[in-house]
Design a protein around this nucleic acid. Structure first.
Length: 729
DNA sequence: CAGCCCGGACCG
DNA sequence: GGTCCGGGCTGT
């Protein structure tokens, strides 16, 4: 295939417009190459495109127009075109959407924009002052480097008028320079933090993998404080030594100035940042410099995976289990999986770092597909407290009470010792069910059929499925009898009521996401609690992560079985991790902590695994169960998302689609749903998900594509496919 | 019959 | 995705 086209030759161009095929154009004056970013006319408009190959020549030649111009940007490498194609196949995404992902940078075609920079001039200033001397020293110290006005003034510790004064006298020269400058060089030879034996050995293994220049993926497992970051930064250093580029992906929330400072401390300069908060001009610079090799290390969110790296040698996925790597809107992909794909095309190494790896990665490491490195905690022992179960079948508990006598006793002991207790219940609101004692009717949501949850604090009923709310009715909506509506079951608000009655002198704080208007208010409350502002904390999932409570020595889980009901594929995995995280809240106090799990099924394998702390054993059992069921990571699963402003309509059509699944049945795929549970309200639209389960990816993709093609939907409905077989949920 | 709105086809 | 075009409806 020719890679260069003479002027007037037919070229096939992929545009960012949602057309399902390449369009033929004539090569512009001076010709063009495959991969060139071009501007082409489309109807009355000019749009961005990439020369993808020779034209098809099956279109009326007289109607073919010419490429307007080749843009001033590094051409797309063959490797990148291959990557975009593979991701498109894998996620059933049209190519133009892929190209849009890969060109998320403003003004790609603009001529280089200029700004003023400052260097050492030739003349001597008439008068030397301290401030002036500092400016000249900074400029000579950094030799050939040029500064912007602000940078120079800040580095020298003077005001900008000092610099301006020197310019006027010719001691400092002012020049125009392109705005999109290369990023400062990173120096991998600077001394890193001293590594422990474990860490040094890990760094050596990763270093050797990078020196091999081949593809490979390593699961780097280590608890918080075990030094994962130091180890993978050494891998970055090795990658930079080889002259290749490196990418570190972080979950959105972990992308902090603090992390960037750590990188700066290791390499002597800031890396290139890429995330939604980066300004337009910086974004443009980053995109261009990544493509030209003027950026050695990118630290960014998942979309950084689609930057036009010239020679990518390493991708680090920090906190690889984090669900925010899964893009949920637009193009649906999991950055963790696509990173492995990109690395395999680019002959790069991948490091998946996590304290609690996803089951998929664990299985891949176990089967030898990935290598495995484990870092031991610096503190040796586990951070988990003592754990035991309270068998609720043995507890004498009146109805509408949930804190067992055993747990009450443990809380009292903490109150007397002046220590904190956490009562954990993963259920917001007052009561999950409201029932009419006259007729037995349960109040359900009008939109999605899920039961509505009473929130006494808000004085409303709330649907946790779709977000719909309505005032608490006085009379039963079904039999119209007054005063017979009764709450059934506990929520944190009701638990609070019970705790207040049991421990009237204790200071009780409730942490539930719906009780706080802002993140700031929540943070203030958490800090107040941490410094001893409460004796008993009652919390939902909100308390599982993040802040430590140093005074907390007891965690009581009210309904440890809660998450194990239902048909969620990841119920066991999630419950295991949630319980460990929650229990861990009592693991860092001075006195040894205690976690008590109230359960009706102490023999349940998940509860037993939590209590024994046998993580490896749990993963093994969970993996075996998945294997037997043929679900990810062993079988493939795809999701079909139907969204509409009307919950009922989306639901009805979901049901109809689930029944009309000919092409899917033919390949032995099973379609599940829609059940009420998968309805979610997202940005004003209700979404229903259907699950499709199959053994292999390729036939599933083909069947889905065929199936989607034959579906005709009402105009207000959207249908999209989420084929992220490793991690649909 | 002009004005306007909506859905659909098309874009090289 | 943006634009244009034609059909059908409304209103005088």
């Amino acid at each position: 295939m020719p890679s260069h086209f003479e002027e007037g030759a037919l070229v096939g161009v992929l545009t960012t417009q949602p057309l399902d095929r390449l369009l033929d154009y004539k090569a512009p004056e001076g010709g063009c190459f495959v991969g060139a970013f071009v501007e082409v006319p489309l109807g009355p408009r000019k749009v961005l495109g990439v020369v993808w190959g020779p034209g098809r020549g099956d279109f009326d030649i007289s109607k073919i127009r010419s490429v307007i111009r080749v843009l001033d940007a590094a051409p797309m490498l063959d490797e990148m075109r291959q990557f975009l194609g593979r991701v498109a196949d894998y996620t059933l995404t049209p190519m133009p959407a892929m190209l849009r992902l890969a060109t998320r940078s403003p003004g790609l075609g603009d001529p280089p924009s200029m700004r003023k920079v400052y260097r050492l001039g030739h003349a001597e200033p008439d008068r030397m002052t301290d401030a002036r001397r500092r400016v000249l020293e900074v400029l000579s110290e950094y030799g050939g480097l040029s500064f912007t006005l602000g940078e120079l003034a800040e580095t020298a510790g003077v005001t900008s008028s000092v610099v301006k004064g020197l310019v006027k006298q010719g001691a400092v020269s002012e020049e125009e320079s392109p705005r999109d400058l290369p990023y400062p060089r990173l120096d991998p030879e600077l001394p890193g933090k001293e590594l422990t034996g474990d860490q040094a050995a890990g760094a050596e293994v990763l270093g050797a993998a990078i020196r091999s220049g081949a593809y490979g993926t390593t699961l780097l497992k280590g608890v918080t404080g075990s030094g994962k970051t130091e180890v993978y930064l050494e891998a970055v250093a090795e990658c930079l030594r080889k002259g290749r580029q490196a990418l570190v992906l972080l979950p959105e929330i972990a992308l902090t100035a603090e992390f960037l400072k750590r990188v700066e401390a290791r390499f002597g300069a800031m890396p290139t940042e890429w995330h939604s908060g980066v300004t337009m001009t910086e974004r443009r610079r980053a995109w261009k410099m990544v493509g030209e090799g003027g950026a050695q290390l990118v630290v960014g969110a998942r979309s950084a995976l689609f930057l036009p790296f010239r020679d990518l040698g390493l991708i680090v996925i920090d906190e690889e289990h984090d669900t925010s790597y899964k893009q949920e809107d637009g193009v649906l992909y999991n950055a963790r999986d696509m990173a492995v794909l990109r690395a395999s095309i680019a002959s790069a190494q991948v490091v998946l770092a996590s304290a609690t790896p996803s089951l998929e990665s664990w299985v891949n490491a176990e089967s030898g597909k990935y290598s495995r490195l484990e870092l031991k905690s610096r503190f040796g022992a586990s951070e988990l407290p003592d754990m035991s179960a309270i068998d609720m079948r043995d507890e004498d508990l009146p109805s509408s009470s949930w804190v067992s006598p055993s747990l009450q006793a443990a809380v009292r002991e903490r109150l007397e010792a002046g220590e904190q207790s956490l009562l954990f219940l993963n259920r917001r609101g007052y009561a999950p069910v409201t029932i009419c004692r006259a007729c037995g009717h349960q109040i359900a949501c009008d939109h999605c059929d899920a039961r509505m949850v009473e929130h006494r604090f808000l004085k409303r009923l709330v649907c946790h499925q779709c977000g719909e709310t309505k005032p608490m009715p006085e009379v039963c909506p079904s039999c119209e009898v007054e005063g017979k509506l009764a709450p059934v079951g506990p929520g944190v608000e009701r638990l609070h009521e019970e705790a207040a009655a049991l421990f009237p002198d204790a200071r009780i704080a409730v942490l539930s996401s719906d009780l706080f208007g802002s993140a700031r208010a929540l943070k203030a409350k958490v800090e107040e609690i941490a410094s001893g502002g409460a004796d008993i904390v009652i919390g939902t999932q909100l308390v599982a992560k993040g802040h430590n409570f140093p005074l907390l020595t007891l965690v009581g889980v009210i309904d440890a079985d809660l998450g194990l009901q239902g048909s969620d594929l990841r119920a066991a995995e999630r419950t295991f991790q949630l319980m460990r995280q929650v229990a861990g809240r009592a693991g860092r106090a001075e006195r040894a902590g205690l976690a008590l799990l109230q359960t009706f099924q102490p023999e349940h394998p998940v509860i037993r695994a939590i209590l024994s702390g046998d993580e490896e054993g749990f993963w093994r059992a969970e993996a075996a169960e998945r294997k037997a069921a043929g679900v990810p990571p062993y079988g493939r699963m795809a999701g079909i998302v139907i969204s509409s402003p009307e919950a009922q309509q989306a639901f009805d059509i979901g049901g109809a689609l689930a029944r009309a699944d000919g092409p899917l049945r033919r390949i032995g795929a099973q379609v599940f749903g829609p059940a009420p549970a998968p309805i979610a309200r997202i940005r004003g639209r209700h979404r229903v998900r259907l699950l499709v389960k199959a053994e292999k990816t390729a036939p599933l993709q083909a069947a889905l594509a065929q199936w989607v093609a034959q579906v005709r939907l009402p105009a207000n409905l959207r249908l999209s496919i989420d084929i992220d077989p490793q991690n649909f949920f």
